[in-house]
């Protein structure tokens, strides 16, 4: 999958300008950046929910923005996505949520659907929770169900939108392990969007650091941790001031105070 010269604007505000990325098949790639640099927007562009102003995204050789609605839907069947909110369908049980893509896209007989769903649930360790409803799940469990649903059609690629946000350490550990294991066991391509440095370094094969609409830095997680570039050091180390200024652009402080 590759992103070439991607530009995107929202209400005339620049989100991306000439963004270039390449994501390798079968690897876990982390896309990092501060809040508001458009990480989720990037996933929406990859999934074809938004259209770029210039440049484009190519997935498996297909230019996403140029696809017809039918082709886009066919492509999306081969992509899984885990939303930050898990986006489970609240009126369906855990079992039915995981079965949902199968029921919508295949005409498999009921026993086969049952087996497939239970296999996916077993992978995320929630086979016993199949009859619960999303409202009865903890955040970590909901995300695991979302993950089981994202892989229910055995996609070639799974996108994770902030998979670690708002989880307790144990759930976080479970999700980290699952992303890595599923990636290796099912031979998928994984794209993890996150601002969680430790977890990203832990699981990612390759890391892109985004800022101001472009790639600020890229490299393997070891290289990134060792990097001397100030942008990388600030982000990886969580320093309050650096190239990303602590202060929102403002006029002269003293003049502002005395001026009133």
């Amino acid at each position: 999958m590759s992103v070439r010269g991607l530009s995107f604007y929202r209400d005339r505000r620049m989100i991306f300008q000439g963004l270039d990325l390449a994501i390798e098949r079968g690897k876990v790639t982390a896309i990092m950046g501060g809040s508001g640099v458009g990480k989720t927007t990037l996933l929406n562009l990859i999934g074809g929910r938004l259209a770029p102003a210039a440049g484009g995204v190519a997935v498996d050789g297909q230019r996403v923005a140029a696809l017809s609605r039918q082709e886009l839907f066919a492509l999306r069947r081969r992509m899984g996505m885990l939303f930050q909110s898990s986006a489970l369908l609240t009126d369906l049980s855990v079992f039915e949520n995981v079965a949902f893509p199968l029921r919508e896209h295949t005409r498999l007989p009921e026993p086969l659907i049952r087996d497939l769903v239970l296999m996916k649930l077993e992978l995320v360790g929630l086979r016993g929770a199949r009859d619960l409803y999303p409202a009865e799940l903890s955040g970590g469990m909901a995300r695991r169900v979302g993950l089981a649903r994202a892989i229910s059609l055995d996609p070639m690629m799974v996108m994770y939108d902030e998979p670690f946000a708002g989880l307790d350490p144990i759930s976080m550990g479970v999700i980290t392990k699952l992303i890595r294991e599923l990636n290796d066991a099912l031979g998928m391509t994984s794209i993890v969007v996150t601002h969680d440095v430790a977890e990203a370094c832990h699981i990612a094969d390759y890391i892109y650091l985004l800022g101001e609409g472009r790639v600020v830095a890229e490299g393997t997680s070891a290289a990134m941790q060792a990097s001397a570039a100030p942008e990388v050091r600030q982000f990886m180390g969580g320093l309050p001031d650096g190239p990303v200024a602590f202060h929102y652009p403002a006029g002269d402080y003293l003049a502002d105070l005395l001026g009133s």
Partner: peptide, 22 residues
């Protein structure tokens, strides 16, 4: 509205299911 607010509609779209139809 709630399905939209909780990303359920977006989730469907990403699962190649058209929420308008479904």
């Amino acid at each position: 509205g709630l399905m939209k607010a909780t990303e359920q509609l977006a989730g469907m779209e990403m699962m190649a299911v058209d929420p308008l139809k479904r």
